[in-house]
Amino acid sequence: MKIPLTYLCTAALALTLIACDEVDEGERFEPVEDFTPRKNVLIEDFTGQRCNNCPRATNTIAAMQQLFGEEHVVAVGIHGGPLSLPAPAGLATPTAAEYIARWGVESYPSGVIDRTGGTQLYTAWTAAVLERLQMEPAVDISVTPAYDAATRSLSISVATTGRTGAAGQLSVWLVENGITGYQLMPTGQSNLQYVHNHVFRTAVNGTWGEDVAVAPGATDTKTYTVTLDAAWKAENMAVVAFVSNDQEGVLQVVQQPLAANNSETQE
């Protein structure tokens, strides 16, 4: 079949228009400017010890914490639902069921980023976290824990200071790192020595926190006292405090270890 000359010429002309430019070797890559997070971001990681894909979500969290800093990416593993194990054998809590119902969690692993955007599969977390890291926080939060090992009594002082002013709910949680226990792995293997980190233990000031409102420059301080469960290891625990509202999500979140040198235990 003969191809008309007109078509050949047109095709040749089109090829010249899309030819590559010559770029010097030293100018082929544009360096990414250093990124400094403006606020911290909360990840509520709905997970379960019988969820084989959940370790993948945990790895995603670890990667983000390495990239952006642990203090800026505050993750809390909320064990609940049909793929979790109940206490004392497992890490599920009754409070988790309330959060699962609130966010309509149906599949695992699922995450809620800064209490905005609903539940998301872990493959979408990094982009959502990056977006929230760039926002200006409306409040600053300072947490001062004081623990008495003899009585297992923990006193927590939480100071919320307004930057631009805000109103919402202050939630104060306890999380624990370095818990060794069962986890079903992506390969199908059962890992009885898996190290679970940032596990939600309890909501100190109620499931949904309590109201807080601060004007710019004003500080609101609240103090709480809680007795640690005998099964919890205080040296591996931390306080997670955040202010949130339905319109803007989490305004700011901080994590403060109970022990001075506490950090997440690596597997």
Partner: peptide, 12 residues
């Protein structure tokens, strides 16, 4: 029936 395979999420 809980389905955790083919894709990376588990749900009934």
């Amino acid at each position: 029936l809980n389905w955790c395979g083919i894709t990376t999420d588990c749900m009934p």
